[in-house]
Design a protein around this nucleic acid. Sequence first.
DNA 1: GTGTATTTGTTCGTATGTATT
DNA 2: TAATACATACGAACAAATACA
Lengths: 238, 238
Amino acid sequence: MSARDLQERIKKLIIDRRLPSGAPLPTEPELMAHLGASRNSVREALKGLQAMGIVEIRHGFGTYVGTMSLAPMIEGLAFRTVAGHYRGEDTLLQLLQLREAVETGLVSRLAGRVADADLVELDALVDRMEEQAAQGGDGIAETDRAFHATLYRGLDNALLGEVMEAFWDAFHRVHTDLGGTPQDPLVTCRQHREIVDAVRSGDAIRAEGAISEHFGNIRARVSTTGTQHPHRCHNERV
Amino acid sequence: MSARDLQERIKKLIIDRRLPSGAPLPTEPELMAHLGASRNSVREALKGLQAMGIVEIRHGFGTYVGTMSLAPMIEGLAFRTVAGHYRGEDTLLQLLQLREAVETGLVSRLAGRVADADLVELDALVDRMEEQAAQGGDGIAETDRAFHATLYRGLDNALLGEVMEAFWDAFHRVHTDLGGTPQDPLVTCRQHREIVDAVRSGDAIRAEGAISEHFGNIRARVSTTGTQHPHRCHNERV
DNA sequence: GTGTATTTGTTCGTATGTATT
DNA sequence: TAATACATACGAACAAATACA
C-alpha cells in the first residue's frame, strides 16, 4: 500500500466519521489494522497529513484531527519566498504586492460598513501602537497584525480573515528573517490612523488611498533589503 | 534528533546551497550521515516536506527540490472545506465568497490596463467556451480556469496569479466532488463575455459588476447543494 | 511519589520495486 | 541481460512522553 493512498484513506476516514477538529484518531496499531499497512508506512502518511495541518500528533498521547489552520500555507509561502529571494528573484516584493492588491480591493468594499464596535477597537489598537512607538517600537508588529485582522473581520468571512492573516504572517516572518529594515513607527501609526478614519468616513476612494500609501511605505523598506544574508535559518519553530 | 528539527535542517540545507527547483537533494544515506539520524526519521521528515511541496520524491530515482507550487495549499483548503461542509458549516460558500471578494477588488484595478494581446486571448477563450457550451459543456471548466488565469496575468505578479488559480482549483474540486449542480453554460458564456468587454472599456465599476454577477450566478448553484453525500472520496490524486 | 499501561518517537535489519547503466 | 543505485516497505525492538491508579 503506497503512502499516498494511505493519506487519502485516512482523510476519507476523517470525512466519513464526521470527525471534528480535536477529535481523537485511531492509534497507530489500530490504523495499521484498519489500513493493512506497517507502522512505518502509517507513520509516514501521518507525517504528511501533519504537515498539511490535517492531523495533530502529540507524543505519548495520541493523534488527533488538526485545527485545519492555514499555518502550513504560511510555512510553504514563507519558504518559497525565502528560497526565491536567495536565487535573486523579487519574491518578497511579490508577496507584498499580493497583500496590497488584495487589501486595497477589500478595504473599498469595507468603507462605511464596519461595525461601530470594530471601529472603536481599531482606534484602541492605533492608540496602543502609538504607545509602543513612543517606547521604542517593542511589540508593534503584533499590534499591526491585530489591526489588519480586526479590519477585515467586518467582512464576516472567517476564511477570508484567516487568509489575510496568513499573508501577513508569511510576509512578516520572511521580512524579519531576511533582516529587513523596520519601518518608522510614527509614520506607521499615522498611516493606520488614516486607514481607520477613511473607513469610518465611508469614502471608498480615500480608504484605498490610505491602504495604498501604507503599503507604499513598506515597499520602500523592502526594496532596500537587497540580498542580505541571514545569520540564522529562515525560521525555527511553528 | 526530532523529526521537526530534521525538517528545518533540510530546509536550511536547500537555502544554504541555493538549490533551485528540480535540483537533486542528497540521497537518503547521505542525509542520514549529514543529519545524524536514521533512515526512517529522515524519510518521515521528507514526507512532511513533500506534503508542503518543498521536496519531490521520485520512487527509485531520487529526491529533488520541489516546484514550490501552491498545490499543497489547494490540498489543505479543499480538505478543510469538505470536512467543514459535512459538519454543517457553509465552508464552500465561504470559499466562493473569498474568491468573489478578492476578484472584484482585483478586476477594478485591472479595468483598462489589460494588454491588447491578453484581451484577444480572453476573447478567444470565450469563443471556445461558447463552442464547448454548444457541444454539451464538455471541458468548459478548464476553459473557465484559463480565462481567470489569463485575466489576472495582467497584474504582472506571478505569485498573485498562482494564488488566484489555487483558489479556483480548490473551489472547483470541492464543488464537483460534492456533486454541485453545474451552471448553465450559456449564462456562463454571456457573463464572461461581459467581463472582457467591461475590462476593455476601462470602466472599473462595470467590471466589478460583471464579476459580481458572475459570482452571484455561481453562488445560487452552491446554495442549493445542501448536504448531499458524495459517492467517492473528496479527491483521489494530485 | 511510584509504578504501570498506553501511545508516539527512534533505530536497526532485511527484502522488494524501480530506474539507470 | 546483468549490475548498480536508489527509494519503498515491512517487522521487531527499545526509548521517551503521557495518563492514571
